[in-house]
Design a protein around this nucleic acid. Structure first.
Lengths: 143, 143
DNA sequence: GACAAAACATGATAATAATCATATTTCGGA
DNA sequence: TCCGAAATATGATTATTATCATGTTTTGTC
């Protein structure tokens, strides 16, 4: 459903949401281990997220990755899109290029409403909100 | 969302639903071209579907693939599962092995209802029904 | 029963996604 | 202003998925 990279990225961002701030940055190696993702790989993903302004970073000593207040307002959807692009989420279930609302493939109508619900739901999930839930121990981030 | 293989398989089955019957079987090469999928590849997928009893086949001259009446009662879900396995559809959005209802990851609750709606929807879509819609030109299967 | 037409089976290659490795740039602190 | 700690950039390797190729078995027809 979501690619491995996207899942990694989401875990990393949630980890940062809970464990970082403007004046308490976290280095890659201190992110990789707790979320159980290969360090070099998550490093690449973090750089991508940083370039897309989903997360913040600073170089040099005392540097690292963190979420600014603004970053915390991003949605899960924006992370998914940053990593795997918009098309994966929205193109036809059967990969029919000509499938659309007016000339739908057989699956189109049946799932289009559910799909847009799902997308909307991803769009409404803000990082900030999710991290609150983790902090309140209503949600968990193990392994 | 769905793998390429799954999309190919779905197209092929729908094609058979519309263009085959017990006494009018279709050879791989006559399936591959209209649904625009590499012949050798769809051949492999068809064999798998046949082995899983999603579609029917017979060898030798006058042989080919087709859907029996029983085959037509299968759901889209059963095809997805036959090709990519059950786990892909049901495991945690973040790949957390320990994520479950009682100790949910932050995304779990938010999408679990939508996800089960989607699965249910896939489960309710019967091949027969979809092919009716194609025949009635309420749905289309181009490219 | 021999032949040829089809699915079936198996393995090889190519493309893409995931993982690893290393060199370069930036920046705080002595 | 120089050193080292960090992100950044780039490329190489591995694993997985998709694609291609070729040989084997079954079965209808003559």
């Amino acid at each position: 459903m979501l690619s491995k990279s996207t899942k990694y990225a989401l875990k990393a961002v949630l980890f940062l949401a809970v464990n970082s701030s403007e004046n308490s940055k976290v280095m890659v190696k201190d992110i990789a281990k707790p979320i159980n993702v290969p360090q070099a790989y998550i490093a690449k993903l973090l750089q991508k997220l940083s370039k897309e302004n989903i997360i913040s970073s600073s170089r040099g000593p005392k540097g690292g990755f963190y979420l600014s207040e603004g970053d915390r307002q991003h949605s899960v959807l924006s992370i998914i899109i940053a990593i795997e692009g918009e098309k994966k989420l929205t193109n036809c279930l059967l990969n029919l290029k000509k499938c659309n609302e007016f000339k739908p493939c057989p699956l189109h109508n049946k799932i289009s409403s559910i799909r847009s619900e799902l997308l909307q739901s991803f769009g409404e999930m803000k990082i900030d909100e999710l991290s609150q839930e983790i902090k309140a121990a209503q949600a968990f981030l193990p392994l």
